[in-house]
Design a protein around this nucleic acid. Structure first.
Length: 415
DNA sequence: TCTGGGGTCCTAGGACCC
DNA sequence: TCTGGGGTCCTAGGACCC
């Protein structure tokens, strides 16, 4: 079953977004109208690369692939047609998208569409730096910000004085001043609609919508435009003749629930009507930290045992470094394997004591590996740290555990 | 021309406890 | 020799997102 992005308090019958002036004395007071912005950087990674390579402006440029592989061919600028490997397109400029190239597409396939496009390796440090800069610029205008990844944010504008168009212009000016880059902004009463709105006039656009605009502006869009309706749900909806958000809005809610389950079915109905009361979440603790790698060639668990062992150690060391840098311990370690047929398995194990060092991670990963079939070649190995505990949380955990055992027996060994 | 790496959330069964 | 129901935790898989 498809996941629903926080369907929020289950919209009951007749509930959801209450019309302005809903009956007094109801169970809940009418929520105050909100103003939520979604700010999305335009072709972010590619645009950052163009800051470094202004001479490539106007050309089809694709960012993706591993640096060593990308850089190893040719003397001039690497072309997509020179690439051989398992990379995917991370971002493409609008000129490259005109050839049908899009994010997530295999680079080999992209090369068939746009062989002469420039291929640049990703520079994640640079993107992170620019990401911090645009977020700082945006929060200087609108402080209540929800981080949605490296290139997009939500902002709660509800309590700000200026009108929405003025705020959008201020945000775009601030982002451009700080980074030299353009973004697109949607402003509506909720996150769902704002996310849709910011896409409507990309790049460099501003789109402000009210609930009254839903039939004309939202309903003609394909279902897949909704954040939370992915490839599987799109396909299932299509087989029932539901192609647009408007089709979905007209579908019988009971039928949707029967087809997609109580949670997702109800959410689909609410989403099609533009109903969404999720708050802008300004602080969040991570739930897990992970590292994974796809091999350049498929590896056999026995024949390539040493190489796999080296790769596992490397992943554990990098994960341990991540934990140390971010100040977490993990109380549960998991592994992920992808076989040559692309099937994926995971194994998890909770730990009696939280750990953070590479050796403990590796030991637990090996225990997990013993529970998994190792009879065919692998293309990916990953390791994940869950049940995260901050250093403060860990001290509290230790104090509790210590109190439960022999209190004060070895005080010199305690924290 | 097969399909990266980092995440979140949901479901569902079984164990275990009350 | 049987019979509940609820609650939480653990585990595995999968959809989805950036």
């Amino acid at each position: 079953m498809a996941a629903s992005p926080a369907p929020s308090p289950q919209p009951g019958p007749g509930d959801g977004v209450r019309p302005a002036g809903s009956p007094p004395g109801g169970e809940r007071e009418s929520d105050p109208p909100r103003r939520i912005a979604h700010l999305d950087m335009d072709a972010f990674f590619a645009s950052v690369e163009l800051l470094e390579h202004p001479e490539l402006r106007g050309l089809p440029v694709v960012v993706g692939g591993r640096r060593a592989l990308v850089a190893s061919r040719g003397d001039g600028l690497p072309r997509l047609k020179d690439y051989a490997g398992r990379g995917v397109v991370t971002t493409a400029t609008y000129e490259a998208r005109a050839f049908g190239v899009h994010s997530g597409m295999g680079l080999m396939k992209a090369a068939a569409l746009a062989p002469e496009a420039i291929l640049l390796p990703a520079h994640f440090e640079a993107y992170s730096r620019v990401s911090r800069a645009f977020k700082a610029a945006a929060t200087a205008v609108a402080p209540r910000m929800e981080d949605r990844g490296i290139d997009e944010i939500y902002l709660d504008l509800t309590d700000l004085a200026d009108d929405s168009l003025a705020l959008a212009r201020q945000l775009k000016a601030a982002v451009r001043e700080a980074t030299g880059l353009t973004c697109s902004i949607g402003i509506t009463p909720n996150k769902l609609l704002s996310k849709l709105a910011s896409e409507l006039q990309k790049p460099d656009g501003i789109t402000i919508l009210g609930l009254e605009d839903i039939p004309a502006r939202i309903w003609p869009l394909p279902c897949a435009a909704v954040n939370g309706i992915g490839p599987k749900a799109t396909e299932r909806l299509k087989t029932s003749g539901i192609l647009t958000i408007g089709d979905l809005a007209r579908a019988d809610p009971a039928w949707l629930v029967a087809q997609f389950g109580p949670s997702y079915g109800a959410w689909l109905h609410a989403a099609a009507l533009g109903r969404d009361d999720r708050p802008v979440v300004t602080v969040r603790e991570p739930k897990s930290i992970s590292r994974e790698t796809t091999f350049e060639r498929d590896l056999h668990p026995r024949l390539d045992r040493e190489e796999l062992s080296r790769i596992l150690l490397d992943l554990c060391e990098r994960l341990a470094a991540d934990l140390a840098r971010k100040g977490y311990r993990t109380g549960g370690v998991g592994i992920k394997l992808r076989y040559d047929d692309f099937t994926t398995v995971t194994r998890d194990q909770v730990l009696p004591e939280p750990v953070a060092d590479a050796g403990s991670l590796r030991q637990t990963a090996r225990a997990c590996l013993r529970r998994v079939p190792l009879d065919r070649r692998l293309r990916l190995l990953g390791i994940r740290a869950g049940h995260l505990l901050t250093e403060a949380g860990y001290q509290a955990h230790r104090a509790q555990a210590g109190a439960r055992r022999e209190p004060g027996l070895f005080p010199e060994l305690e924290g």
